[in-house]
């Protein structure tokens, strides 16, 4: 008789998974699996849903009061700030964020070598963002190719921008997870996550190449190299494994690039939404 794994029994406990009827019969007949299942269910029965502290009717208003002064200006066009002017503030902010990240992850004695490698990567990347023009603002492309904003290239680009921005956010979180992983440890969940991201990334990169978003494709390409490394590393990582992985991520300034590109795409998307919103407003006013 073949037994059921812990995972099957956990899913069974939660009413999920396939072969539920088979499992039920097996549990009646097999003392070993029945014992494991009792163990799982008695553990989970101890984890009660916590009582959530009360929040009164005015709570929504209190939250609003706390956040209202922190709301950003609506539809800030940061993209044009980047491309038209020097945009130093935005870059400085990103550079500071990145430096903190490195300082947090690495001890001071190793900082110098890493910082040098990463600085080269960043300078090249930033220079590329300023002096190459593959990523035209979305509005330009729509105006020349699709006056109604609904033609295939415009639509494809629009979908890609939103999807890649989300994809980069998720990748950033996964990479941050790896950067913060404790050692020795099990990174198998992160590896599965990286595997999913890798599949998606390849599709988006191909799309980006097809529609001429070369800088997006380049960042995705860099990202994929790290994802592949994560996927193929052992699940039980030693301090040395993780350190090597982190060094390569840092030397390529990957988190920095991912963050910058994600910001850019979000802002392009915001610019696009603002452009979409204004005709609707004026239509409503005249009708």
């Amino acid at each position: 008789m073949s037994h059921y794994g812990e995972g099957d029994l956990i899913l069974y406990y939660y009413g999920e998974g396939r072969r539920r009827h088979d499992i039920e019969r097996h549990l009646d007949a097999c003392p070993a699996c029945a014992a494991t299942y009792r163990d799982i269910s008695s553990t989970l029965a101890m984890v009660d849903v916590p009582a959530v502290p009360e929040r009164g009717d005015q709570y929504g208003l209190e939250v609003w009061q706390r956040i209202r002064h922190r709301l950003p200006e609506p539809q800030q066009d940061v993209w044009s700030k980047h491309s038209a002017g020097p945009g130093r503030a935005a870059w400085t902010e990103l550079a500071t964020w990145w430096r903190r990240l490195v300082e947090r992850t690495f001890r001071a004695d190793r900082l110098a070598i890493l910082a040098a490698a990463a600085t080269i990567a960043i300078v090249a990347f930033v220079a590329g963002r300023f002096w190459s023009t593959p990523s035209k603002p979305a509005a330009t492309i729509t105006a020349t190719q699709a006056p109604d904003g609904g033609s295939l290239p415009g639509l494809r680009q629009r979908i890609l921008i939103g999807s890649v921005a989300d994809h980069l956010d998720r990748s950033e979180r996964m990479l941050t997870d790896i950067m913060n992983a404790s050692v020795p440890g099990d990174i198998s969940a992160e590896q599965r996550w990286a595997e999913d991201l890798l599949t998606t990334s390849r599709l988006y990169r191909q799309d980006a190449v097809d529609i001429g978003e070369r800088s997006v494709a380049n960042v995705l390409d860099d990202l994929e190299r790290s994802l592949i490394e994560i996927v193929h590393s052992p699940s039980q990582v030693t301090a040395a494994d993780l350190d090597a992985m982190r060094r390569r991520i840092d030397a390529a300034a990957l988190l920095f690039k991912v963050r910058v590109m994600s910001n850019e795409l979000q802002e392009r998307e915001g610019t696009r939404s603002a452009g979409d919103a204004s005709p609707r407003t004026s239509t409503r006013k005249t009708s």
Partner: peptide, 20 residues
């Protein structure tokens, strides 16, 4: 959580294993 199904499943499994 923006994960694949497999990653989500194994995160739950690992949590339950640790709790056990």
């Amino acid at each position: 959580l923006g994960l694949g199904t497999s990653a989500a499943k194994h995160s739950v499994f690992r949590a339950v294993k640790k709790l056990r």
